[in-house]
């Protein structure tokens, strides 16, 4: 399969991630959406690296992204727990202190 197929899969996954972030009412879905977006980016990195001619750069980026995603997940989960502690809810629509 060519590069285009991978890019298409990546784009579709990105779109799904966006939808998950925007529509769902649970903070955890936002986390999942972020993971999907990160993974879509990862697919792109690896695919372009595989079809391109630039050493290990893309794959290294991918590894870096995975590491960041792990860190992000840990921190985000801690935040979720705190948000729940503060608002007694995991709905992002209720954590609207930013409005104030």
């Amino acid at each position: 399969m060519g590069l285009g197929a991978y890019v298409a899969v990546s784009a579709a996954l990105f779109g799904l991630g966006i939808v998950a972030i925007i529509t769902r009412r649970n903070v955890l879905y936002i986390l999942m959406g972020i993971e999907m977006i990160l993974n879509a980016a990862n697919i792109n990195f690896v695919a372009f690296n595989r079809f391109g001619d630039n050493g290990l750069d893309g794959r290294m980026f991918a590894i870096f992204t995975i590491i960041l995603a792990a860190a992000e997940a840990a921190v985000a989960l801690a935040i979720v727990l705190n948000v729940f502690h503060l608002f007694s809810s995991v709905k992002p629509s209720e954590a609207d202190l930013l409005r104030e």
Binding site: I18, I30, P92, S93, A95, D96, L97, L98, E100
Partner: peptide, 8 residues
């Protein structure tokens, strides 16, 4: 609105 999702 202060809603992150709306901003997103």
């Amino acid at each position: 609105t202060g809603r992150i999702q709306q901003y997103a």
